[in-house]
Design a protein around this nucleic acid. Sequence first.
DNA 1: TGCGTGCATGTGTGA
DNA 2: CACACATGCACGCAA
Length: 893
Amino acid sequence: MESKTCMNELCGASTSSIEWRRGWALRSGDFAVLCDKCGSAFEQSLFCEVFHSKDTGWRECGLCGKRLHCGCIASRPLIELLDRGGVNCKNCAKKPGLDLISSDEKPNGFGTLRTDNASNLQPTSADNQLGGSGDKMKLMQLGNNSEGFGLRHLLQFRNDDPDGSFGKMKQEEARLDISKSNVGAKDIYESMAQTNLSITLGSPGGNSNSFPGAVVDEKDSKTSSIIQQGTRSRHLLPKPPKLALATGPEANAGISQIRIARPPAEGRGRNQLLPRYWPRITDQELQQISGDSNSTIVPLFEKVLSASDAGRIGRLVLPKACAEAYFPPISQPEGLPLRIQDVKGKEWVFQFRFWPNNNSRMYVLEGVTPCIQSMQLQAGDTVTFSRMDPEGKLVMGFRKASNSVAMQDTQPSAIPNGGHSSESFFSGVFENLSIISGYSGVLQSLKGSADPHLNALSKHLSSTPGDVSWLKSEKHEDKTREGLLLQSILVPERKRSRNIGSKSKRLLIDRLDALELKLTWEEAQDMLHPPPTVMPSIITIEDHIFEEYEDPPVFGKRSIFVVRTTGGQEQWAQCDGCSKWRRLPVDFLLPPKWTCKDNAWDLSRCSCSAPDELSPSELDNLLRLHKDFKKRRIATSHRPSQEHEPSGLDTLSNAAIIGDHAGEPGTALVATTTKHPRHRPGCSCIVCIQPPSGKGKHKPTCTCNVCMTVKRRFKTLMMRKKKRQSEREAAIAQRNQQRTWGGPKEEVEVDSNSKHVSSSHLDPSENEARSTSELESKSQSNNLTNKLTETGKGGIDLNCQPDREDAQASLNRVSMMRLLQVASLPLETYLKQNGLTSLVTEQQASSASHVLPQATADSEGRPNEHTSATQEHESGEEENCEPEPDETPSDAQ
DNA sequence: TGCGTGCATGTGTGA
DNA sequence: CACACATGCACGCAA
């Protein structure tokens, strides 16, 4: 082994024991080298010819800009390394917040677990063995077998170990006996090289620094697989703060660590495996599987059981790639019997076979029903397939998804399967996070956490046999930190469907608990708050103040607003800790998590021990009023247009709400606004009281969003109208031709209507009276009347096709035009009021038609307020709708 | 009639 | 767009 120099100039160690390697697969394809003396690791990227060819040996620290000399690169032409600017010097790398992985962890690398005996389960992660200057030979020995794994832990220890001694690693090393089993070492190599990718978001100490994109989801994990093939590269090591975007969950997941458990390398076509099949087996599961044997467990893949899989048919569909990679090759559809041992040691024989399917194959395991039942598995649970080496025996494990019971009533006794529920507790929400493997080390760190939630959880997990999982800890960490969404939205824990993020939407859609996650617009609004750190820009339009937020609203805690008959307004919120209701100022915006101790307005009730201010009956009354109010609100928003402001726009202002109901019996009213997240009853801002059209004192040349939206809509509508008109004219011409040839009578009648439509289209105001009276005088046939009645439900189908030209539509056009005209008045007025005649002129000129701006009502004026409250909100989209006729019989007369 | 088997098909996902 | 896969369904066999 040739001598090399640590690239860290602060170290400068020259040693022959440094095992420079390419292929340290870090997340996102970065590669790293490190010094075995100081532990400094430097991110390197593979496949950059630039560095390779133009290596100057210098690079800048990514944090402080200090120039570091890489003494080794130039002398290592065989190593394709490139620093992409993400290199940190030792000092910088040791700065708090840059720790990659907690030194508390006792990573086993997940991929392979070697068991000398069940009671002395030793992670064989060679990661832990690297480093330290003592056992160089062992290091080298291991190093020869460990290319591609372990660096991450070196990285972690580098940062955690202040004196660079890697003492803990040495401890681990002392327990390792690699030479004991060549097979084991080989497996370690194979598995680890392929299995482990690791990243952490911070230290258990709560460092908030994190790395961009540190949370790995399925897609990311997939990316990782690509990376390991060296096709892409990204940064892993700490980046300059400006790059270390502490955003979202990543920023908060202080102890997060993501492990991408990749299947072993030896499978055929292994690179094709989708991440969702990558095994995620905890230490305990591995131990469970391995039992007392001395075998090495190599997780192969896993699969979430579908309804079909878990059904009575007894066929478990195997992922093709997995089947081909890890099961014996079969050439005949009949396949062959496969012996698979379950975790209890019972051996099952399944028929491994395939069906021809679209020039492909569909692999199934047949006869799995007894096994499935034995394990009490159901759809959504996961079966894992592993291999015992050196025997090569297939082992089948399982993991209950269990959204279960356990979490519904929080009775531990109700937890089936010894606490797996805790996993499901979080796995539902965080299903998309590929968080893998169990690390008791982190769990221990949780025990010392100041966060009671974490402590409680860690206790719970620790006491839970079989599935003590870092996964859970991490997820709970996410939960407690993220709190916001979860607290507010996913209140009943059982609602946290494990199927979130599931591949199959078939499972998703029909699951009641998943459906329960759906929120109404109003419910969502109740939880929306303006971003707390963002100051709105204030603009004034029509003497009303706009608050413009560039950032989207954030989720906050729901609260209830009450308007007393005395006029006093109150806000009530429930403590997240004790669930007691507390009165708050009406203008207070609740954070996602709020407890009594945050109640700074009422010191007598700033503790959870303080009695509830509301008696049960009062609370009932409050909630009932709230419910009633919501019903009324929905009903109000669905009221026909004539009951609204002339504009026909959503003007459900808070003042109106209060005014409508202030006189009602009862002590209080509950009111919220549908208008804007932060706006509360009584708010008189333009958002709450003004039509979204911005009707007011805008100049013709105004280019504000409101005006531009109006103009854009108007233009689009005019174009659409023009198109429809030309189509109608063509259709009329065609029908006239047909009539000349002698068409059916009814068709003639329809045509007559069409003619009116056509003419009405040219002059709606005149046509309205004419068409209605003619309709009446013509005494349409019952059939026709029925049609009109049937179709005249008075609603606007926003999903309808504006260009639809069926006979029914033709029948309805008369009153449609009337509606258009009526409904368009506000915009007309608006245009006049705003001096937007230029717009009209422009539209008229561009369309070269006789249409009037009235039709803007299609989208703007809402001729019929049958649209839902949600639809009433300004979307800025071009509502692609043709108003259905409001053809009640009276309308048709 | 019920069940098992094999194929077909629709849907979702990744390239 | 191709492929994987979940599931539907027809067919045949056995009770």
